[in-house]
Amino acid sequence: MFFGQKRAPNTRLDLLKSVVLFKDLPMRDVAMVDSLMHERRYLADEVIFDEGEEGQGLFVVLSGRVKIVRHGQVPETLLEFGPGSFFGEVALLDQCVRTAQARAVEDAHIVALFRAEFYSLLETHSAIASRISFQLARVLAARLRQAITSRDQHI
């Protein structure tokens, strides 16, 4: 890019940049991460992943809404995500089964970052991957704190 020339607006990259995981990355690195992501489109009520499936990576919502549901005796909606938020992040770190179902509430445009690609990012662009990992650790820590607080309130 030449000096003084403005970057062409790219809503997708801007939206990715607004995701907490990628907020510390310069736009060039966000583009690098974006090149590793897989794009999917889901209709309202379509299942994105199912409870008990082996998770492969995290999903970032670009548009639409997604709910996380756990099917006990009565289906229980745990969380709802809108544009700029992400879910299924534990699968990015570990090969584990999904503990709940993700379902599109309305038509959703989603990108997925898979574990294998994240590992290759760790090899080729360790600085980018470590920043993402750090942010991910902070998010997980915050969720753990929230879960503990909510359990204490219940008690």
């Binding site: 897989h38 998770g55 492969q56």
Partner: peptide, 25 residues
């Protein structure tokens, strides 16, 4: 290589997406 892989993955129906991608890996 990576671009071609993503191009192929686009053709996979959503229901098989994660499992098929696992197959690729």
């Amino acid at each position: 290589g990576p671009r071609f892989k993503r191009f192929l993955v686009r053709a996979i129906p959503n229901a098989f997406f994660e499992k098929t991608l696992y197959l690729f890996y």
